[in-house]
Write a protein that binds this DNA or RNA. Structure first.
Length: 890
DNA sequence: AACTGTGGCTTGCTTG
DNA sequence: CAAGCAAGCCACAGTT
């Protein structure tokens, strides 16, 4: 099988490099050799094309990925051909080589036996002095660039250079360096000049983007231009395999003893196909006909796999759900076992991923598992990372219900089941006008990271990657994380909570009760704004200049640089500004076409993911530019400005009844005074306060982070209350929501009184059902995540762990961290059991559930003067308490 | 020796 | 990332 579509645009080097044959005697010669090979990086030029529709242009490619080829000993780039919808592999023609930096001068490096030995072995190609700026000392320094033959000489092996001498920039993946050195931007478009070098091709921005650009700085304009470029509708195919495994045995890629018997395929250009290996020889053509997709039957497993490869090779992008850990490795190992060795020409194992040789493989499982994607891009719409749960949440479709094992299903059912998986996988990349593919591309543009990495790595890696580039642009030597940590810390506060590293946000004590007409104002993206406005970055906090030491962060001994703009601060500023000032506005602008509006919405969302994570990563020790004093400075300013805002509100006669981190709840304010407050904060602190929402009424409990309210749009907004939490039983949660639903209609006291009777009725009814054991088991399930292996709970044994251990014992299995345990409160010795082991409702501990019902409802009822009598099984109104009337005296 | 009450601590989930 | 909540575990002290 040949891959004729696989165009390799690289040119053969003119001659076999002399450099690699002769031993290198002195740096003098190396200098000369390096002169033409490394020093001259190509300058990538730009070309502007006016208003050309994206599909029409020939020879235009989007840079989507890169890697290092150890067989060619060269880096390569992968481009998506937007006309012919295939991937072009472009091998380096610039004689670029891997490198890292040392702070030792050339002479002392040359006297090191290690270096001499590696030079003689041709592993080190050359040493060169360069001038860089050290961001930590803010001084120009001389560093030695060590240029090597292949990336493993720098790092990745036990005897690599970085394990033996102190190096800088030695943990940047080689292809990342390569992209940066060539000045390339992932997700942007290129064409190839006559020399075969990629040149930037810039689409003419839309009218509204051009208009927005007028007011911006050059740097911001570049960002805008890059982000707003159209995203091609990638041609892609989703794949899903079924393995015929005996009951109770999970197929393992490391031991592929069971046959692959179904391969389902579903593509963006309408291919719908299920390939079946007739392993029992009993499939009739009649029985498998289906009007939704084609079916092909094979008498041989290898033929099945080969056919699948033939089809998917027509697609530049392969989409899977768990393809990195299951489908593709299984195809690999199973093929090898069956003697189909050529499979390695198409599917390759990477370090943490599986690659396809003709294109890009995206494993959606990893992408949707990404915490930032889950919480910020999709607002936590799905909770379990499974195809079924994600598809249900995002496209309102689930997997097929099955009896549990293939033996109990007809072949038609199995085929349909398999196809549904492939179909859902594809649809997850298609809904909302290809939202997911666009999101991935935009994040690649923001982070300048390859599509493969964007879909597999976390937000701190995305940010780190862009930070590298920002350092390079300023000729900064990228600091090692240990250097940043060794900087002065000078911390003065003990965190409030044990186990935390620094002090966080301020939460104001709520004023309990029912409050009418509450306006919530909040600081528009407070932490990013603080990062920007107060110049916070790892190098500017506690900077080396004496003259900055008086620029103190309020209530700390930390100071901030007044001479140089910090990199993180600058990045936060740009991302925040273009999000707020451009994309958020345009995504709501009625004068913009619907398509564009939607696209700007995606960009806005991607920027939000990054901006929300920025502060967090500074305080996370897994981040290369982690620096606690910087994270602490952010929260210190945050506490400072919210205190000042409350102070000012008080002076103006506004009543603040609650606030959390960046928000203030103001009761029935005079709008002119509110306006004054906002103006004052803007003037004084360069931060924007804005009206977030208005509650017709807000019900605050005495607990922080626990309240609900009826918004001006007529929606009941619930925060923190137990009834909302995922680990309350559905039965209790439903009662909770039923009560809140009653409250939705309330506008005055009479209605409140009427509703109160209804509420008590609801609760009594619920109690009766519990006592009479009329509630089905599933309604009483409490779902709790197992966050460790059961044997790793050493300090205490929580209830869900007890239940989990029973499950493990009963089924002889080992539950994985992240598994959701479904427990039920029972009347046995330790009060819990996994629902799987409970036969009937009789085993339920009704008393426990009534207690749980009461404590859940108490949070809302205490404020409404409905008393729950603990112990007793009845609810009563505490008539002695003042009635609701007090809330209406205004 | 069995029971009850208390407080520190762990765990999981949510808010911002 | 920290703050904050509820539930439950667990050791300990003080009854009965």
């Amino acid at each position: 099988m040949t891959l004729d579509r696989f165009i390799n645009k690289s040119r053969k080097p003119k001659m076999d490099r002399d450099l690699e044959k002769k031993p290198i005697a002195s740096t003098q010669i190396q200098e000369e050799l390096l002169e033409d090979s490394i020093r001259e990086q190509p300058k990538i030029e730009e070309k502007r094309i006016d208003e050309i529709p994206i599909e029409a242009e020939d020879g235009i490619y989007m840079l989507v990925s890169a890697n290092y080829s150890s067989s060619d000993n060269k880096p390569y780039l992968l481009f998506y051909d937007i006309k012919n919808h295939r991937i072009i592999k472009w091998m380096d023609v610039t004689d670029h080589h891997p490198y890292a930096y040392s702070k030792e001068p050339i002479e002392s490096l040359e006297s090191l036996p290690l270096i001499v030995e590696r030079m003689n072995k041709q592993q080190i190609l050359g040493l060169r002095t360069e001038e860089k700026i050290d961001p930590l000392s803010d001084k120009k320094i001389q560093v030695t660039k060590i240029i090597v033959r292949d990336p493993l000489i720098i790092g990745g092996r036990a005897d690599s250079l970085r394990e033996q001498i102190k190096l800088w920039e030695a943990d940047i993946k080689y292809y990342v360096n390569y992209i940066m050195d060539l000045g390339l931007e992932v997700g942007s478009y290129y064409f190839f000049d006559p020399q075969g070098l990629p040149r930037r091709y810039i689409f003419q921005p839309s009218k509204e983007i051009r208009k927005a650009m007028e007011k911006l700085s050059d740097e911001e304009r570049k960002w805008l231009e890059r982000l707003a470029e159209p995203v091609v509708d990638f041609k892609r195919i989703a794949l899903d395999i079924e393995v015929y495994n005996p009951r109770g045995v999970m197929p393992q890629p490391d031991n592929p003893e069971h046959p692959i018997f179904i391969i389902s395929l579903c593509s963006s250009d309408g291919l719908k196909k299920v390939l079946v290996y007739d392993l029992r020889g009993d499939i009739s053509n009649e029985g498998i006909k289906n009007d939704k997709f084609d079916v092909e039957v094979f008498k041989n497993e290898i033929e099945l796999i080969k056919r699948a490869l033939d089809i998917i090779r027509e697609y530049p992008i392969l989409i899977t759900f768990n393809g990195d850990t299951f489908d593709l490795p299984y195809i690999l190992t199973r093929s090898a076992k069956l003697g189909f060795k050529e499979v390695r020409d198409f599917i390759e194992r990477g370090r943490n991923e599986i690659r396809i040789t003709w294109g890009i493989h995206i494993d959606l499982y990893k992408f949707f598992k990404n915490v930032s994607i889950k919480t910020y891009a999709f607002s936590g719409a799905y909770d379990i990372i499974s195809l079924d749960s994600i598809a249900r949440a995002l496209i309102n479709k689930g997997k097929m219900e099955t009896p549990g094992h293939f033996d109990e299903m007809s072949i038609q059912e199995i085929i349909e089941y398999g196809f549904t998986d492939a179909e859902l996988t594809l649809e997850l990349t298609q809904f909302n006008n290809n939202l997911v593919m666009r999101l991935i591309t935009i994040i690649a543009r923001i982070s300048n990271m390859t599509i493969d990495d964007v879909t597999r790595l976390s937000v701190s890696n995305w940010i780190r990657n862009r930070m590298f580039y920002l350092h390079r642009n300023k000729n900064y030597l990228i600091p090692r994380s240990d250097e940043i940590r060794e900087k002065k810390w000078g911390r003065h506060f003990q965190p409030v909570t044990k186990g935390k590293k620094y002090v966080g946000a301020l939460v104001i004590d709520p004023k309990p009760g029912v409050h009418f007409n509450v306006i919530v104002v909040d600081f528009a993206s407070l932490y990013p704004s603080i990062l920007k406005e107060y110049n916070i970055s790892y190098e500017t906090v506690n900077c080396p200049h004496d003259e900055c030491k008086t620029n103190l962060v309020p209530e700390t001994t930390t100071w901030i640089c007044t001479k140089k703009k910090g990199l993180i601060s600058e990045f936060a500023g740009i991302i925040r500004d273009i999000r707020v000032n451009v994309f958020k506005k345009l995504s709501k602008d009625k004068n913009v076409s619907r398509d564009n509006r939607e696209f700007y919405g995606v960009i806005q969302r991607a920027l939000k993911v990054i901006i929300n994570a920025l502060y967090g990563v500074i305080g996370a020790d897994t981040f290369q530019f982690y620096y606690l004093p910087a994270a602490e400075a952010v929260t210190a300013y945050g506490r400072y400005v919210i205190k000042k805002a409350i102070e000012k509100a008080g002076e103006l006669g506004l009543e603040v009844i609650y606030g959390d981190t960046d928000s203030l709840f103001i009761k029935d304010p005079d709008m002119d005074k509110l306006e004054l407050l906002i103006e004052d904060i803007k003037k004084e602190y360069r931060l924007q306060l804005e009206i977030d929402k208005i509650y017709k009424y807000a019900v605050l409990s005495s607990r922080k982070k626990n309240y609900f309210g009826l918004t001006s749009e007529g929606i009941i907004d619930i925060k923190g209350l137990m009834g909302k939490k995922s680990n309350t039983p559905p039965f209790i949660r439903n009662v909770f929501y039923e009560i809140l639903d009653k409250l939705r209609t309330v506008e005055d006291i009479e209605q409140f009184k009427m509703v109160r009777k209804d509420i008590i009725e609801i609760i009594r009814d619920a109690e009766t059902k519990l006592i009479n054991k009329e509630v089905p088991l599933e309604e009483l399930v409490i779902t709790i995540t197992l966050s460790k292996y059961t044997d790793q709970y050493t300090k205490t044994t929580p209830q869900h762990v007890k239940a989990a251990r029973k499950l493990e014992k009963a089924f002889g299995i080992r539950l994985q961290p992240g598994h959701m345990i479904k427990i039920v409160k029972t009347r046995n010795n330790d009060g819990v059991a996994p629902i799987e082991l409970v036969r009937s409702v009789d085993q339920i501990d009704s008393k426990k559930y009534i207690e749980l019902l009461h404590s859940t409802l108490e949070q809302i009822l205490e404020v409404l003067d409905i008393k729950v009598n603990k112990g007793k099984k009845v609810v009563m109104i505490d008539e002695r308490k003042v009635s609701l009337d007090k809330f209406f005296k205004f």
